[in-house]
Design a protein around this nucleic acid. Structure first.
Length: 343
DNA sequence: TAGGCCATCTGGTCCT
DNA sequence: AGGACCAGATGGCCTA
């Protein structure tokens, strides 16, 4: 398959805008990146700002409308002097480094987010998209707890958490929420144990073989529980199936569940005996109409304070997981989240 | 081997 | 002018 980039490369090269030296730019950056790295350098970035007025903007000439000039007319300033090459390379290299740094910051933030999710695994990281989906669901579910009094032990709560998640992620979450109350000795051993094993056999009397494995489902391990995350699941003392869904559960309360165009239907629904009805509004977002009120108590933080992201290794959940018989009260959630951004 | 996920490079656009 | 942000492209790695 000839890629677009490949096409551009050929085009640019044929126009003589490329200097063979450029193909080795950014050589200091990582082992990857192959031949495509030098593509697209016929843009204005290549132009030397010192070259005079009549040299520039021949790209824009074709865009500005009145004149239907072709973008490139004739062999103008196609020569890449050594100095220009060096300038361009330096600029590109700096931009690449910034972009890498920016993406690393984004990934660090995602890691932090993963760690405050109700299910966290060192060995089986949630993908980026699944992390975001689970976070959305978690906020949504907590808001239901706070605003509508929905029980975090209810079947609807778990259903909300798993809404739109992929099958393995749903199993991971469901498996983690199957845990009984954390025992101190158990907590220390949770790190490396797949939560599936815990759910199935680690907690006799609490682990109900209702969630998985299920025929056709991938087998655990999907992850394990961090001790700090047991705070999120401590309220799940028994199986979620020890209760019948109440009229307050998400399926019937005022806040319609999210039914976005997400991943394929959840097999977990079978395990939970949940009904995954196809949404009549596929593609529409159906979030709660207003943000959870506990979020309003979160401290404001300037983006700049998040810019230098706190090292993940230094991040600790400040909540005492033993302190609550149920979900942490909103103000604790808020303070916890506030502490994330106060470093 | 196909597909999913990811990191990286890149050029364009917007903002300060 | 330079940086931040974004989206597209690409190739590597992993797994079913």
């Amino acid at each position: 398959m000839m890629s677009k980039r490949g096409d551009m490369s050929e085009l640019v090269s044929s126009l003589g805008w490329l200097d063979e030296d450029l193909s080795s730019q950014d050589g200091e950056e990582g082992p990857e990146m192959g031949s495509h790295r030098s593509i697209g350098q016929g843009s204005e970035d290549m132009e030397d700002p010192d070259e005079g007025d009549d040299d520039d903007d021949d790209d824009k000439a074709g865009v500005d409308g009145e004149t239907q000039m072709p973008k490139r007319r004739g062999p103008k300033k196609k020569k890449m002097t050594r100095a220009r090459q060096e300038r361009f390379k330096a600029r590109r290299s700096k931009a690449n480094a910034r972009e890498r740094s920016r993406m690393h910051g984004l990934n660090d933030a995602l890691d932090v987010l993963r760690k405050v999710m109700p299910c966290y695994s060192k060995t089986q990281k949630l993908s980026k998209i699944e992390t975001l989906r689970l976070a959305r669901n978690y906020i949504w579910a907590l808001s239901e707890v706070l605003e509508n009094g929905q029980s975090p032990e209810s079947h609807g709560f778990v259903e909300m958490l798993c809404k739109g998640l992929s099958q393995p992620t749903s199993n991971l979450v469901a498996g983690c929420l199957q845990l009984g109350p954390p025992a101190p000795m158990l907590i220390n051993k949770l790190d490396e144990k797949p939560c599936g094993a815990l759910a199935m056999g680690g907690q006799p009397g609490h682990g109900h073989p209702l969630v998985y494995p299920s025929p056709g489902l991938p087998s655990p391990p999907y992850g394990s529980l961090e001790a700090s995350h047991l705070l999120h699941v401590k309220s799940f003392k028994g199986s979620v199936y020890e209760q019948h869904p109440s009229p307050n559960d998400c399926g019937s309360n005022s806040t319609p569940p999210y039914e976005g165009p997400l991943t394929p239907p959840l097999s977990i629904s079978g395990n939970y005996a949940l009904k995954q009805e196809p949404s009549p509004h596929e593609g529409e977002r159906s979030y709660p109409s207003h943000p959870p009120h506990f979020l309003s108590s979160l401290p404001h933080y300037a983006p700049s304070s998040v810019g230098h992201l706190f090292p993940v290794s230094r991040y600790e959940l400040p909540l005492d997981i033993q302190a609550f018989d149920s979900f942490p009260p909103p103000h604790m959630v808020a303070s916890q989240m506030g502490s994330i951004y106060s470093e």
